[in-house]
Design a protein around this nucleic acid. Structure first.
Lengths: 111, 111
DNA sequence: CGGCATCCAATTGGATACTG
DNA sequence: CAGTATCCAATTGGATGCCG
């Protein structure tokens, strides 16, 4: 069900391969905030108070695994962890921009 | 695009309002095929054999509800139903294009 | 042909409490 | 401060069968 996308009737569908990035409920918002600047875990969480810290951790781990987010741990007490976009993460920004434009279009249509 | 999402108006966040479109596992693939041409239900299903018809129906209904897809029923026997993009659906295409580009970037990074 | 209804499995999202 | 660990609720995805 996972990697066997060699269905000949199917495509070399690029969407299937990247959709996982966009599926997490808050992943795009995370990427948006990190595109503005490097953020510590607590800072990011405060910008997204509707997300529990446990879930924020999970999504950050996923984005890290996908190679879009970098996690830098400072060996201190108390701990300090900074999150930032990787070069690949930066390459996702045009998608965010396109989605932003689309959101505007949506509002126009509702008016 | 900078200050439109300040630290507190996360609810105005355009991504949150639009993410539902992109969450369905196959919604982007559906939109991609429909961007190529108008398709009957069966045609679309044959292009996506990994999706059961019941689920394809569900996603199409959602995309219709979101205003991206138009469903045209021909009152015939046997039934004929054609799906196409609405004007709003067309406006989603830049997002698909951006995602496509990103998919290419992903592959570059894996190499 | 293009559904719908039903039921079920899997995945996701989230609350809460505890920790180095 | 930035997490784990656990448990649970909600949502999603999917199989199967019937219908006009």
């Amino acid at each position: 069900m996972n990697e066997s996308v060699s269905d000949e009737n199917f495509l070399d569908c690029p969407f299937a391969s990247v959709q996982k990035v966009v599926r997490g409920k808050w992943s795009m918002v995370i990427l948006y905030f990190l595109s503005q600047r490097v953020l510590r875990f607590g800072e990011l969480n405060r910008k997204m108070p509707m997300v529990t810290q446990a879930y924020l951790t999970k999504e950050l781990r996923l984005l890290e695994e996908y190679g879009l987010v970098n996690r830098k741990v400072y060996p201190q007490v108390p701990p300090k962890v900074e999150y930032s976009l990787t070069p690949l993460g930066e390459k996702f920004l045009p998608v965010l921009k396109a989605l932003e434009n689309f959101a505007v279009d949506c509002q126009d249509y509702q008016a």
